[in-house]
């Protein structure tokens, strides 16, 4: 396999992984607080839609990404009201959000743009970082990407630090493990959880914006295409730790990119459907050989009543 192909493969891995990693980080925050983050697909969809529409009207990438993130946070906020304050079932509401956002974004697109659909938006070009991108292999893989991906590099250690080294992170984890205990200590279970959910929504929103603005350059129905679920799997797989989730996301991205390249390289006639299974099989094999016990936050899914 020649170098160009390898470099291109690595580059693609990063591209494919980033949306998944961002969702996974969001899921980590929500689920560490004890709330199932089933609505990730929904947050991605609304954000992708809003950021593309904003782009059409403002022609400014930065504002569009911001708009996307805010929309994700808004929907997550609504979800948090239903689940944390009212106590509705988290899993169903999350799934419901997915359906609602899918229907909403597709319908709005049809209503506003008719059957022709949303037009293309200007490309978000990759920005080469001067010195670093010249490093063999790693250089073009990591440092020749659009800006939001660089943002992600910076965010990963930051979110890890917030979750494990900051006060709020500790509170979040406490609330997820033993809310009554946390309550006794004076931590507001509701506020902490809501904040966790909204942070989750923000990251899923960023993921949707990255997907639509830099990789798809428009909005298509169901643009998230299951990446929200991948993110959920990556977060669980990574032990609800942003670093672990990043690793899992990378594995998924690598496997996903691999299966395309495999089709090209294989001279044996393997059904493309079998090759498509590779990312999932890789995940299973990984867990089989390397995975350790991953107990989810003890209070996950349970509604905490404040009397």
């Amino acid at each position: 396999m020649n170098v160009t192909v390898l470099v291109e493969y690595l580059n693609s891995t990063i591209r494919v992984s980033v949306p998944i990693i961002l969702v996974a980080i969001g899921v980590c925050y929500s689920e560490r607080g004890g709330v199932y983050a089933m609505g990730s697909e929904g947050y991605m969809l609304i954000s992708a839609f809003v950021s593309v529409v904003t782009m059409i009207y403002t022609n400014n990438h930065f504002i569009s990404v911001l708009a996307g993130i805010l929309s994700g946070m808004l929907v997550a906020g609504i979800f948090s009201y239903f689940t944390v304050i009212l106590g509705a079932d988290q899993v169903i509401c999350g799934l419901g959000i997915n359906f609602v956002m899918l229907g909403l974004t597709s319908s709005l697109q049809r209503l506003l743009w008719g059957v022709t659909g949303i037009p293309r938006i200007p490309v978000m070009n990759a920005v080469e970082i001067p010195v670093l991108s010249k490093i063999p292999l790693i250089g073009s893989m990591l440092f020749n990407q659009p800006i939001p991906i660089y943002l992600t590099y910076l965010l990963i250690p930051l979110v890890w630090w917030i979750m494990f080294r900051s006060t709020w992170g500790l509170q979040l984890r406490a609330v997820g493990e033993n809310p009554s205990c946390a309550d006794t200590l004076g931590i507001s279970v509701r506020k902490t959880r809501i904040l966790g959910i909204i942070t989750g929504g923000a990251f899923c929103g960023l993921s949707g914006a990255v997907l639509s603005l830099s990789q798809v350059q428009t909005f298509t129905e169901n643009i998230s295409g299951g990446r929200g679920w991948f993110g959920l799997i990556a977060a669980t797989f990574g032990g609800w730790n942003p670093l672990g989730a990043t690793g899992a996301g990378l594995i998924f991205g690598a496997a996903e990119s691999l299966q395309l390249r495999l089709q090209i390289m294989s001279k044996i006639n393997i059904s493309s459907y079998v090759i498509l299974m590779i990312p999932y099989l890789v995940a299973l094999l990984f867990i089989l050989f390397i995975g350790k016990s991953r107990r989810h936050p003890a209070a996950m899914g349970k509604f905490y009543k404040k009397y």
């Binding site: 239903f82 169903i92 509401c93 419901g96 959000i97 359906f99 899918l102 229907g103 049809r110 129905e221």
Partner: peptide
Amino acid sequence: IPSALLDLIKGSIMISIMVGNAVKVF
């Protein structure tokens, strides 16, 4: 009507029922 509305309706119903349950318990 566009089929996308069906998803919208499905999701709204799911959420409404759950919220209804929660309000009832409340």
